[in-house]
């Protein structure tokens, strides 16, 4: 089955002298085949019209987290977004709109600079468990952090979060992706370190007002807000604001 000719309106541009995106939307019309995803359409555009259209991708299987973009205004992985679904939501005769992630600095066309993620990752204390690496814990304990391990670091959640997108709190706020990482460390059955003070002060968890926009776009289906952020917020409250815990602490009953 041929789906017919479809027009794509794709952002083409580079940063200007101030680093702000400078460019325009360019229309390309291509023939779609059955089973195509958005990334296939981009590859067709490159092969037919624009070999220099910049687009980052790697696995075409939703595993590497490289092909993040905004398709019809929504943050998605281009390789896991089916064209038949996109056409259903695109107005009749209208173009499919593809833009780079708007929260990160532009490199070119659909490619953005997400190096902030590497820097933020380095600020987090790694797992610190018993010296002897023959670690044993129950399946139930493993299940608890398993969900967080499925993060593919696509940064779609960070792209969507208003704390980043509207308020650019890149220095004060770790963003949903890193609360997922922090939760995986804090809830690890054998981890011996507490990162709660940093989560409150350096990673600014207080900025999150639980809008759940991050959870909505996560391609790995991680329940970011409910399972990672809220439990971390609760730990911060217990540690710093719970009167009984504070008395316990003063009396030396809790560390």
């Amino acid at each position: 089955m041929i789906l017919g000719a479809v027009t794509f309106s794709v952002f083409r541009g580079v940063p200007d002298q101030d680093g702000d995106p400078f460019g325009k939307m360019v229309d390309y019309t291509i023939e779609l085949d059955e089973g195509m995803v958005v990334l296939d359409a981009i590859h067709s555009i490159q092969a037919e019209f624009a070999p220099d259209l910049a687009c980052r991708w790697n696995c075409k299987a939703g595993k590497c987290g490289s092909c993040s973009a905004e398709v019809n205004g929504k943050s998605r992985l281009m390789c896991m977004t089916r064209m038949d679904e996109i056409l259903e939501e695109t107005p009749e005769g209208g173009a499919v709109v593809i833009k780079p992630m708007q929260t990160f600095p532009l490199v070119r066309d659909l490619v953005t600079d997400t190096s902030w993620a590497y820097k933020t990752d380095r600020r987090i204390s790694p797992l610190s468990g018993p010296e002897d690496t023959d670690w044993v814990f129950s399946q139930q304990e493993a299940d608890r952090v398993q969900e967080f391990r499925s993060c593919i670091e696509c940064m779609l959640c960070v792209n969507t979060c208003h704390v980043m997108r509207e308020h650019q709190k890149f220095d004060e706020f770790a963003g949903p992706r890193f609360f997922v990482r922090l939760a995986s460390l804090e809830m690890h059955p054998l981890d011996e370190k507490s990162r709660i003070p940093e989560i409150k002060d350096d990673f600014g968890i207080g900025y999150c007002n639980i809008t759940k926009c991050c959870t909505e776009v996560c391609p790995a289906g991680i329940n970011i807000t409910d399972n990672a952020i809220i439990p971390l917020k609760e730990r911060v409250v217990t540690e710093f604001y719970d009167p009984i815990a504070m008395i316990g602490k003063k009396l030396g009953l809790r560390s």
Binding site: V14, Q46, A50, P51, D52, L53, A54, C55, R56, V107, R108, D109, V111
Partner: peptide, 15 residues
């Protein structure tokens, strides 16, 4: 072959 223009992230050039 002609891979388009620009040295920054140009997949046509790389190819």
């Amino acid at each position: 072959v002609f891979g388009g223009s620009g040295k920054t992230y140009n997949p046509g050039w790389h190819q």
